[in-house]
Design a protein around this nucleic acid. Sequence first.
DNA 1: CTGAAAGCGCTAACAT
DNA 2: ATGTTAGCGCTTTCAG
Lengths: 341, 341
Amino acid sequence: MIALKVTIGDVAKKANVSKTTVSRILNENYAHTTAETREKVLMAIKELEYRPNALAKGLKSMRTNVIGIMLSNLKNPFWSTVLEGVEDTCRELGYNLMICNSNENPEMEEEFIKEFQMRQVDGVIINPTCKNPDLYDKLIDQNYPMVIVNRRIQNENAYGVVVDNVKGAYIAVNHLLKYGRKRVAVSLFKNPFVSTWKERLEGYKKAFLANGFTEADYIIMELEEGKDQKEYIKRFLRKHPDIDAIFSTNTMVTLEVIGAIKDMNLKIPEQIAIVSYDETIWSKYLDPPLTTIRQPGYQMGQRAAQSLIDLFQSKSKPLPATVVLEPELIVRISCGAIPKT
Amino acid sequence: MIALKVTIGDVAKKANVSKTTVSRILNENYAHTTAETREKVLMAIKELEYRPNALAKGLKSMRTNVIGIMLSNLKNPFWSTVLEGVEDTCRELGYNLMICNSNENPEMEEEFIKEFQMRQVDGVIINPTCKNPDLYDKLIDQNYPMVIVNRRIQNENAYGVVVDNVKGAYIAVNHLLKYGRKRVAVSLFKNPFVSTWKERLEGYKKAFLANGFTEADYIIMELEEGKDQKEYIKRFLRKHPDIDAIFSTNTMVTLEVIGAIKDMNLKIPEQIAIVSYDETIWSKYLDPPLTTIRQPGYQMGQRAAQSLIDLFQSKSKPLPATVVLEPELIVRISCGAIPKT
DNA sequence: CTGAAAGCGCTAACAT
DNA sequence: ATGTTAGCGCTTTCAG
């Protein structure tokens, strides 16, 4: 038995009114309706189990109440948290969500933007690959409602929600240096496009300079995505046997770093201390419990969804701005300091 | 500068043809078109940067090429993996994805199903709360394209993709018993609705009976969601000081179990062994490295999306069936056995 | 307070 | 090989 499609016309017929009247009542436009007809119509709707066709409504009204989110990675649990924030906010504000995953691939990114536009989503939240600057510029020029999350793009007129990555890296590395580490390496992906990695490197350097070190003290371990990172890290550590701490800018890499250190039979934190992005529910159960930088992912998702929806709901369009959220250092014993507990 | 909406009419005008012709070319219906007009039209499309309005197309054709997925939990990384499988498959097959999260709440679940239907999605993938049997029955009776993942519902005519939970629990507990543990407890959520927990309990019991134990040997630790689980677990362990192993049916609970055991200064695995659902990238880096049951989440997502899309693409409708995937035991030292590496 | 009619952008008979 | 026309289900002027 296939569900019969019941339309606004069926409801109108059943209630002995016009489609117009039904439409008005559906949209809570009660100003022009008596309580009596309202009752009749609502009854008919209930009896027929009528559900408005959102396609038709969207086609006519030019708004779908759907927003799109494009992530670049589903594996990192940070993004689940962001997604949760976005999802909750959408539900509260009456929006539905379309999702896609660029996988850091700029062609995919462009393709998915097109698809979102064809589907007439009211706006998009995007963690950009950062490899499509012309695309971002074009969308912004066209006033396409868009909120950039997590990473920064080179455009003054973008709306964004980010976490302060310079600060996050700074407090991580500063902590290591304050507790006496001298040879602190940073691990990061060799990707000239992504702002987060540039900023975390900047924070790393800033902490060095603030603690009386010089550029000569930087130890930068650049990783290529997709390679066998553990092997590379081991080679790097053998080449730099004086390293006494590692600041890892990525959760997955951190695990490889821990693996490499264990393979080499070095002790954490006695011989090598670790501080890592991002805090997860596992961090405190790892061996050893991990000192991390916590990023407020849920809030990032919330703020992004709110800002986006503001963009097409508020009469006076808010000025372009990037909200900057604060990271937080969670101290555990992987960095050698005594945990606060 | 706001993006002007360019329609099929604009393209037709520019190319000096009718909308029909443009429509045919858009849909690769080249049988009735000369190469020449085809060129003209494709040029016009490119120049105007025309993008078909998917709403209008969907309204007319009664198909949107969108499917919906409803999860019940975004926190557990298992679901990110499933989502990845679904997302990849959708992209490959030309579908877009809407996502929502019931949060185990049956009212939300019902509400979101309605919204998916209003949006005319072609079908849904759902991890059911299992608390809306009438809703599931109704959708199935109406032939609504739907694939149930992870959990089972009480309806013979459902399409499903699950992992064998009886088997997963069986191999976990069997392993503990074979390695000499006598007092193996199982931790699970007190939720009479969810099939996965019932099945994992069944597998636990089955392993006992297969190893010469009796019903009297079961030790069942029932947890309530939302409570302070660590405290409860500690109390339970004090009440049952002879427990020498725990089979945890949930990742989050496992972490609480580890926390509780550490708080009590007991040794894993010497005093208490652990085997846990699910394998994650952290499992091997925990203290101690965790023996787990791995579930093929990515494949679950893939299969679900494929089956769903088959449902409305294949001429001869496939018969209702539930695909059962195989779990796998990953042995590490938390269960006391020597890891295979 | 209510209804008729036009039209959102697209597709698909049915002409030509 | 191409065009005309009639809707898909809804909202919204404009008339009554």
